[in-house]
Each structure stands twice: as structure tokens, then as C-alpha cells.
Design a protein around this nucleic acid. Structure first.
Length: 297
DNA sequence: CTCCTGCGCC
DNA sequence: GGCGCTGGAG
């Protein structure tokens, strides 16, 4: 059962108060970081945990402190420096976004939501995260953690179910304080709560600042009855693994890698062929006379 | 095994 | 709305 409005209105203040003590001191949350630094962190954090992102982010900020600095280098360097963060298309997108920022916005990260959404690799989540966290503007920021917190605290369900962007944004907007700074802190605090306390597997309700307000807890933790999320396919032996192996090889050198060298990485030649096709289609690899290489453009 | 600050494209 | 995309940690 959903919460009555008066209970719902107590959620944000409680989360904001909790967050002022509980916030992890992540470097991209420091007061003096640039919007570009926030943007880079948001790209890296798409589907990737904080602990893995932090060292890569530090390196990137030292090497490319502005969009212009990154745009001045070939995309191959971005892919190389992405290292093993996973989903290497994000490195390509980030490089492209830097170029677009230089071309369209004079090298400054735009503040306007539609301008942000028009950049490569920036979708509904990342655009609002940048507007909210880098510029302090009031927008609902909804990631997988926030969706789970809302599902539990407001809707009384154990899981959020499949994403529905418009509905998710509206749900967060209803909880969001009017005042900018409070909205900013609630956006960040709700994500933090989902990441550190209201965890998917093992929620720590004893440490939760809104436990007494939580519809799911107050209903006795009913089991999730919605659509089951699809099982993630096995990674060993998958095409994903093959892509990763090829990319690791391409990143390790500045010269084209002959196809037979790549074939030595994989017993299954059909799998290699699919991986190469996919990587070329994604722009992550280019075929040359001497083999495959990272893209320079 | 499941989960992770999503996105672009079909 | 559904699918594919990486890799590591718990």
C-alpha cells in the first residue's frame, strides 16, 4: 500500500539529515570539482561500482582536466585509459561528448537539461545527475538505487521492477524538496541510502533513517511478486568475454594486432568473428591491412 | 550465483 | 519495451 502524503513528506528531510553524516567522501563530491569532473564521474559510474571507478577517475582528471584536453587526443587514448572499467563504448561516448562540448558549448559543460541530453552517452539519468550535482539545479535524479528506495519506502514493494523513466522521474519529483540545496542533497542521499543501506540483497533496516516511514517494512516485508528480472547470461565462454579479451589486446599496443594473434586468445573462431564484427560496428575497433586497432578518430 | 549511480538502438 | 553491452566484488 502506498504511503499517505503526510508520511511521504517526511522521507526527504530524514534522508537529507542522515546523508549529512553518512555520505562517503567521494572525490567527485568535493565542493571544488568542476562540472566536467562530475560528468566524467557519471559516465564511469554508469553500471560500475564506486570502488572501481575512483582510481580511473583520479587519473583521468589529472590527464584531461577539461573537455578540450580530452577532445584534443584521439579516441584511442580514451579507450586505452578506460582500462578495465567495462562497457568501453562509454569511453568512446565520453570522448565524443567532450568534442561536442568543445564544438557546441565553447568547451564548457552545459547546464541546460536538453543540451546535456543531446550529448553522446548522456541519457535521462546522467543529464539530471550533472544538472543536479554539478550545478545544484532541482531535477529528479533516479538511478537503480533510488528506484529501489522508492519502491520500498513509498510503494511497499521489495523491488522496483523494470524501469519506466517517466513514471520513475515523476515518483522522485513528488518526494523532492522544493528548495534547491535540499533537493540536491535528497537526490544524492537517496542514491547513497540505496547503495549502502537499502541494498538489493541484504537491506540493513536497523541502520535506515526512514525505517519507521518505510511502507515495505511496515507491511512486513512482502515478497516481490512482479516480473522476474532476466538472468544474466554466463560470462565464461560468452561473446562479451570475447570482446573483453580482444579489447584488452588492442589497448596493450599502439600497433594493429594481426587477426591470427587474436585467434590465439580464443579457441572458438566463430566467437572471435562475432566479437570483431561487434567491436567494429560499435567503433571500438577498426580493421586495417595489418590487423585490428583502436579507433583514432 | 547477483548486483552494480544506464545508454543507444531495435 | 526489450536487448546487448564489461568486469569485478560480495
Amino acid at each position: 500500500m502506498p504511503q499517505p502524503v503526510d508520511v511521504r513528506d517526511r522521507i526527504a528531510p530524514a534522508v537529507v539529515a542522515w546523508f549529512s553524516d553518512a555520505a562517503r567522501p567521494l572525490p567527485w563530491r568535493a565542493a571544488d570539482v568542476s562540472p566536467w569532473a562530475v560528468l566524467v564521474s557519471e559516465f564511469m559510474l554508469q553500471q560500475t561500482q564506486v570502488a572501481r571507478v575512483q582510481p580511473r577517475w583520479e587519473e583521468w582528471m589529472r590527464r584531461w582536466p577539461t573537455p578540450a584536453a580530452l577532445a584534443a587526443e584521439p579516441a584511442s587514448e580514451a579507450v586505452r585509459a578506460w582500462d578495465r572499467l567495462g562497457y568501453p563504448r562509454r569511453a568512446l561516448w565520453l570522448h565524443r561528448a567532450a568534442t561536442e562540448i568543445v564544438e557546441r558549448h565553447g568547451g564548457r559543460v552545459p547546464r541546460d537539461l536538453d543540451a546535456l541530453l543531446a550529448l553522446q552517452g548522456i541519457g535521462p539519468y546522467t543529464a539530471r545527475a550533472i544538472a543536479a550535482f554539478a550545478f545544484g539545479d532541482r531535477h529528479p535524479v533516479v538511478d537503480t538505487n533510488t528506484r529501489r528506495v522508492i519502491a520500498r519506502a513509498v510503494d511497499g514493494r521489495a523491488e522496483a521492477g523494470p524501469p519506466a523513466t517517466a513514471r520513475d522521474l515523476a515518483a522522485m519529483d513528488r518526494l523532492l524538496p522544493d528548495e534547491r540545496e535540499a533537493a540536491h542533497r535528497f537526490n544524492a542521499g537517496a542514491m547513497e541510502l540505496g547503495a549502502t543501506v537499502c541494498a538489493a540483497r541484504a537491506p540493513r533496516c536497523d541502520a535506515c533513517p526512514i525505517a519507521e516511514l518505510c511502507a515495505w517494512r511496515n507491511a512486513g516485508y512482502p515478497a516481490y511478486d512482479g516480473p522476474k528480472r532476466a538472468r544474466q547470461a554466463r560470462f565464461e565462454g560468452s561473446d562479451r568475454e570475447a570482446r573483453g579479451l580482444v579489447m584488452r589486446e588492442l589497448r596493450a599496443t599502439h600497433r594493429p594486432v594481426p587477426r591470427d594473434v587474436l585467434a590465439g586468445l580464443l579457441a572458438d573462431d566463430a566467437r572471435l568473428a562475432r566479437a570483431l564484427d561487434g567491436l567494429v560496428a560499435d567503433g571500438l575497433a577498426v580493421a586495417t591491412a595489418d590487423g585490428f586497432a583502436l579507433p583514432e578518430a
